[in-house]
């Protein structure tokens, strides 16, 4: 990344600028790949861009940053995404 030598305050883009936001999550989206019809509604509506669109239009979920809002599960017409309670890691 090009750094600019200027007097004013500049922030530079970084993935996870607020840390690993996946820790905010209470419910976790679980994708059932067999049910998915590749409509990509979850991808376009995800507010965090944590639903990753693959080359063949299948999707995968970035659990490191997913905040668990549940919009993807709610907009899925075939109910391929379900929300499950997060279990505490020991």
């Amino acid at each position: 990344m090009k750094k600019y030598n200027v007097v004013t305050t500049i922030s530079y883009p970084k993935k996870g600028a607020m840390g690993k936001t996946g820790s905010w999550r209470i419910f976790k989206p679980i994708l059932d790949k067999a049910k998915c019809v590749k409509c990509l509604r979850c991808w376009i509506y995800c507010p965090e861009a944590t639903i990753i669109r693959n080359k063949d239009d299948t999707v995968s979920i970035d659990y490191e940053y997913c905040k668990g809002c549940g919009i993807c599960a709610n907009v899925c017409k075939v109910k391929a995404i379900t929300m499950e309670r997060e279990v505490k890691k020991k």
Binding site: M18, P47, E48, A49, R53
Partner: peptide, 28 residues
Amino acid sequence: IKDLPDTECVLPGSAACPGCPATMGLRI
């Protein structure tokens, strides 16, 4: 929806509330 480009300028891990409509709009 399939025809929308892959360009992503809102990086994951922002300070938005979960379910924020602003980031949803910004992405598009």
